[in-house]
Design a protein around this nucleic acid. Structure first.
Lengths: 227, 227
DNA sequence: TTATGATTCAAACGAACGTATGAATCAATG
DNA sequence: CATTGATTCATACGTTCGTTTGAATCATAA
C-alpha cells in the first residue's frame, strides 16, 4: 500500500502551509499545525526546507514564478498587438490584476487559497515577508510602471505610482476576503461559495480600478507638490 | 519629585502599545516590549487592563469612539445642509474617509501612528480583532451605506457595497504605509516625512476613491448576477 | 502616626514556539 | 543478502510568550 509517492511529503507540506498561512497568517500558523494537517512528522519541514522562513518563501515562489511570467507574457502580447502605440490602460490593468484574479479558477495554481494568501500577505507586518515580496515583484513592477507612463502621458508619473498603490490595496483587501468589517457586505454575499464570490467580484473590481486610475487629477490645497 | 502623575501608567502603556502594534502587529508586539517601552512593570498591563486582548481593545476604543462620532457629525452636517436632497457622493466619501485621514494631523487623536495601526489592522488575521472591528464599526457603516444608496439611486445596491469595500481596501493599504512592495513607490517618496507623505496622499486618494465609486457599471459575461 | 486600599515590583508558572538530534525505517544498488 | 544514502520518527532542547503571585511601596485619611 504505497499510497505515498516520492516528493509527496514536500508537496503535502506546501499545500498545508499555503492553506494555514492564508487562514492564520505567518506567525499564527505553527509548524505543528502545518505538519499535523499535512500528515507528516514535525521534523519534516526542517529536513526538506530548512526553516519556517524558507518554507513560506517556497510557498510563494512556486506560485509567483508562474504569475509573474504570465504577467510578462500578457503585457508582451498587448504591446505586440498595439504595434508601437501605447497599450490601453484597461489592457494593462487586466494584464496585471486580471491575470492574478484568474489564477483562482485554476486549482493547480493554488486557486482561491493562494489568492487569498497573497492578498493577506501585502498587509503582513513581518519585515522578512516584506523583503521577500519586494524581491519577487521588482522586475514585473518596473515593466508595468513604464507601460502605464506610456499609456497615460498626460498624467504625472507620481500620480500614476500612487494610483497603482491604491489599486494594489483595493485588490489585496478584496481578495483577502478577510471581512474585517463583515457588516459592509453581510447581507447577500454570505451564502455564495468562494468561487461565485470571486466571479462576481472580478468585473466589479476591474471597473472600480479603471475608474480610479482614470479619475480627474486631484486639486492640491497649496498648489501642485512638484511645482 | 513626583514626576509621575495619576493615571499616567495607563496612558504610557496605551501609547507604547499603539506604537508597537502599529509597527509589529498584534502577535508581533510582546508584553515585555510594550511595558519596556512604556517604562512600567511587566505586570502593569494585566493589572490595569486584565489581558493583552483587553489592552488592544482599549487602544482602539479610545480613538475609534471619537472617530465614529465625528463621522456621524460630519454626515449629519451634510444632510442638514442638503435640506432633504441626497448628499453628494463626494461629501459622503469625505465625511467617512476624509475624517479618518484628518485624524493624522492631530497628535492628541493618535496622529499618524494610530492611522497606520488602523490601516494595518483591517488586514489582521486574528479572529478576535476582526470581531472587535466589526462591532466598533457596525452602526456607522449602516448610516453610510444608506446615505450612498440615496446618493446613487441608479447604481445597484450590491454594487455600492462592493465599491465601499474596495474603497476601504485602497485606503487601509495606503495609510498602513507598509510598503510591502516598496518598489512601487521607491523613488521620490522616501525622503518625505510621515506627515508630508499623508498630506500629499490625501487629495490623491480622494480623487481615486471618487473615480472608482462613480465608474461605469461593469459588464458581466453571463448577464447581471441579480437578473 | 497608624491603618487602608491602590499600585508597583521581582520572580516564577505552564504552555507553545522553532529547531535539533540520533535511532529507526525505507528504497535502491552491488 | 548486505550496504548505503535518503527519509521518517519520537523526543528533547532552549527560548519566549501571556499570565499569576505575594511581598514591597506608595498615597490618603482617620
Amino acid at each position: 500500500m504505497s499510497e505515498i509517492r516520492p516528493g509527496d511529503t514536500r508537496d503535502r507540506i506546501l499545500d498545508a502551509a499555503e492553506r494555514l498561512f492564508m487562514e492564520n497568517g505567518y506567525d499564527g500558523a505553527s509548524m505543528r499545525q502545518i505538519t499535523g494537517e499535512a500528515g507528516v512528522n514535525l521534523a519534516a519541514v526542517n529536513y526538506h526546507f530548512g526553516s519556517k522562513e524558507a518554507l513560506i518563501s517556497e510557498v510563494f515562489r512556486r506560485r509567483l514564478d508562474w504569475l509573474n511570467e504570465e504577467r510578462m507574457r500578457a503585457l508582451d502580447a498587448h504591446e505586440a498587438a498595439a504595434e508601437g502605440q501605447p497599450v490601453k490602460p484597461s489592457a494593462i490593468v487586466d494584464a496585471f490584476f486580471g491575470t492574478m484574479l484568474r489564477m483562482a479558477e485554476d486549482e493547480t495554481l493554488g486557486g482561491v487559497t493562494f489568492l487569498r494568501l497573497l492578498g493577506r500577505t501585502l498587509g503582513e507586518p513581518s519585515q522578512f515577508i516584506r523583503t521577500l515580496m519586494a524581491h519577487e515583484y521588482q522586475t514585473v513592477m518596473e515593466r508595468y510602471k513604464a507601460a502605464l507612463f506610456r499609456a497615460l502621458p498626460e498624467v504625472p508619473k507620481a500620480e500614476i505610482v500612487w494610483r497603482f498603490h491604491f489599486m494594489l490595496g483595493a485588490t489585496s483587501y478584496a481578495i483577502a476576503g478577510t471581512d474585517a468589517l463583515r457588516l459592509v457586505t453581510d447581507w447577500q454575499i454570505e451564502n455564495e461559495g468562494e468561487m461565485d464570490r470571486l466571479e462576481n467580484m472580478m468585473p466589479r473590481l476591474m471597473s472600480f480600478l479603471l475608474g480610479g486610475l482614470r479619475a480627474p487629477l486631484p486639486q492640491f490645497p497649496g498648489g501642485p507638490p512638484d511645482a
